[in-house]
Design a protein around this nucleic acid. Structure first.
Length: 562
RNA sequence: GCGCCUGUAGCUCAGUCGGAUAGAGCAACUGCCUUCUAAGCAGUGGGCCAGGGGUUCGAAUCCCUUCAGGCGCGCCA
């Protein structure tokens, strides 16, 4: 729908370009005016050209419109008018809308996808929570956004890999191991204190209990130096299994889990630093080795090998991101908690040093989730090891609702999540509003099937040749608006894919559902006029297709009954 | 001190590449169920887009500045 319009304007501009003597033309913008009276599409191109042509926008618009009218294919427009300061407003013909609807019904979901990705390889790394404790709601938000984004990108023709990076080397997993060891000793009746900064959460003891059961007294008279490796490995692997399970129950699965430890073991950390060294981007100062990240826009250079010979945390991260490039990805997307934003320049620097173009590394920052209950903040103290886990919320509220709410805001804006409100199933809950529209249509189809002998999906029976479909009977304002809205989905979807903003689909779905509910209340679908009923059932079917597609992009289900 | 993010209706938030009269939901108020699901619909009220300055045909949007909130700035991980 948009493409056709852009194509026609483009043709008109091309032939005017010579006459104007312009070397280049600005990009053609197409927007959907907020007021429907202003047409179905509008472009500001005449105003944009005003400066270069040194003529009033309205005159230029006149010229463009005259040119467009002579172009074959411009008959999809009912009216083209110039308004305001130089807007060109297009109104589509009903026939064109009906044809669009027909196509949507025929091709269903495939007509809603796109190939803007052209198979280019994208890697999305998300969640990547430390395997030292359960996922909290913040991780859940990252999971929901990452999951939706991957689905969207895939539907947009990108070759997407979803990856979880496991921080299984270093101090944090060691602390977990020590904490479990201490609990183990306590369970065996010894007075063993938790380590400083150890993990105090309730989840630690069950791991120790497992070890008591399976190993008994085996580690009683050993020091942590002797049996630490066992405790560390056992503990974080156990946590990791839980993380995977929690994510799975949330509806989020990964293609690949990359271990940090493995990067060390395969020598990739050394290799990556050696590679930087070869590019003369590593130097020695004060007994340490530094990566010259400031050459790529970082504030300052960063230490990669400490004075004591140990790697910094940054070193394996360099190796990890180099490895991503070595695996052949065109675009690297990282989804991080917003508190990591200061880390972006150095990773960007490393990727650039290895040859990734600047714009091929994109970071989505996930802002905090404030958990509320009846409007009151839920107290969370990380120090005491008390926090509300993703599992608790999902168990209490449900995965669909939780995901949808996480996707009702831009990722980088803070989000309030009221558990009670989410549970209430009230009108305050946007998930139900959208799902209800879908279920309502299913219900109409059930009625149509029972009372009128229609197929399960209204009249639409695939390639049933006898099925009459007089879409031209859809002439009510609400029907035409609804069709336009449906045909706008691909624009919204592409926008979401290119800007990496799943919430655009969430908003669109709420609007579409709203238009449908409104239509439903005003017009009766199943009536005695068989042709009209068939046409309206078809429209309902189309709404269902788009609702389902959108919900599917968000990873949210579309129930037939509610 | 430096850097990043945020500031839009009473509340929670959208707002496309700088475009037309700034939107939605909730809350408040008024109506609508013997007819396809009332988890719904129709309507009313509600705004110094934090403040100030600038850029231009045009600014919630871009630039500068002030204020307020959040976060980040280690040879920690």
């Amino acid at each position: 729908m948009k493409q056709e319009t852009v194509g026609i304007i483009q043709k008109a501009l091309k032939s005017l370009q010579e006459k104007w003597g312009l070397e280049s033309l600005p990009d053609i913008d197409i927007e959907v005016p907020k007021n429907e009276a202003m047409g179905d599409f509008a472009t500001t191109i005449a105003m944009r050209l005003a400066k270069a042509l040194k003529r009033p926008p309205k005159k230029i618009a006149d010229e463009i419109v005259a040119e467009i009218k002579g172009i074959a294919g411009a008959d999809i427009f009912d009216e083209i008018e110039i308004a305001g300061a130089g807007f060109i407003n297009f109104k589509l013909k009903k026939e064109f809308l009906h044809a669009g609807l027909e196509r949507l019904l025929r091709e269903e979901h495939s007509s809603l996808r796109s190939d803007i990705g052209k198979g280019s390889r994208v890697q999305v790394e998300f969640v990547s929570a430390n395997p030292t404790g359960p996922l909290h709601v913040g991780h859940g938000r990252g999971a929901a956004v990452g999951n939706a984004l991957c689905r969207i990108l895939k539907a947009a023709g990108f070759d997407v890999q979803r990856e979880f990076y496991i921080n299984d080397a270093g101090l944090q997993v060691r602390l977990l191991g020590e904490s479990v060891f201490a609990r183990y000793l306590q369970l065996m009746g010894y007075d063993a204190p938790l380590p400083e900064d150890g993990y105090k959460g309730d989840y630690v003891e069950p791991i120790a209990e497992e070890i008591v059961k399976s190993a008994g007294e085996e580690y009683l008279n050993k020091s942590f130096e002797e049996c630490g490796e066992f405790f560390i490995d056992y503990s974080y692997k156990r946590m990791l299994a839980d993380l995977e399970e929690d994510l799975k129950d949330f509806g989020v699965v990964f293609d690949r889990w990359q271990s940090e430890k493995e990067l060390y073991e395969k020598g990739k950390v050394r290799e990556a630093l050696a590679s930087l060294q070869q590019k003369n981007l590593i130097y020695e100062k004060d007994g340490a080795r530094w990566f010259e990240s400031s050459r790529f826009g970082d504030d300052k250079d960063r230490v990669v090998v400490k004075k004591d010979g140990e790697f910094t945390y940054f070193a394996p991260d360099i190796a990890y991101h180099k490895d991503k490039l070595d695996r052949g990805f065109d675009t690297i997307i990282n989804i991080w908690g917003a508190d990591h934003h200061g880390y972006i320049p150095r990773i960007k620097s490393a990727l650039e040093a290895f040859g990734l173009p600047r714009d091929k590394f994109r970071v989505i920052l996930i802002q905090m989730v404030s958990l509320l209950r009846h409007g009151e903040p839920v107290q969370m103290s990380k120090r005491a090891g008390e926090f509300v886990t993703l599992r608790e919320v999902v168990d209490e509220v449900g995965a669909d609702i939780t995901k949808f709410i996480f996707l009702t805001r831009r990722a980088d804006s803070q989000l309030e999540f009221d558990i009670e409100v989410a549970k209430e199933q009230s009108a305050e809950n946007p998930v139900f509003y959208v799902q209800y529209a879908f279920a309502r249509i299913s219900s109409i189809f059930r009625q149509a099937a029972e009372k009128r002998g229609h197929g399960a999906r209204g009249m639409w029976q695939g390639d049933d040749k006898d099925t009459r479909r007089r879409l031209d009977l859809l002439t009510e304002n609400e029907e035409l608006s609804l069709i336009k809205k449906l045909l706008q989905y691909p624009m919204v979807f592409e926008g979401a894919a290119l800007s990496l903003e799943p919430h655009r689909i969430t908003y669109y779905l709420q609007e579409l559902a709203g238009m449908f509910h409104s239509y439903y209340n005003k017009h009766r679908v199943i009536s005695d006029d068989a042709d009209l009923a068939n046409a309206r059932l078809s429209l309902c079917r189309a709404v269902q297709i788009v609702l389902k597609e959108g919900l599917n992009m968000l990873g949210v289900s579309a129930p037939e009954r509610m």
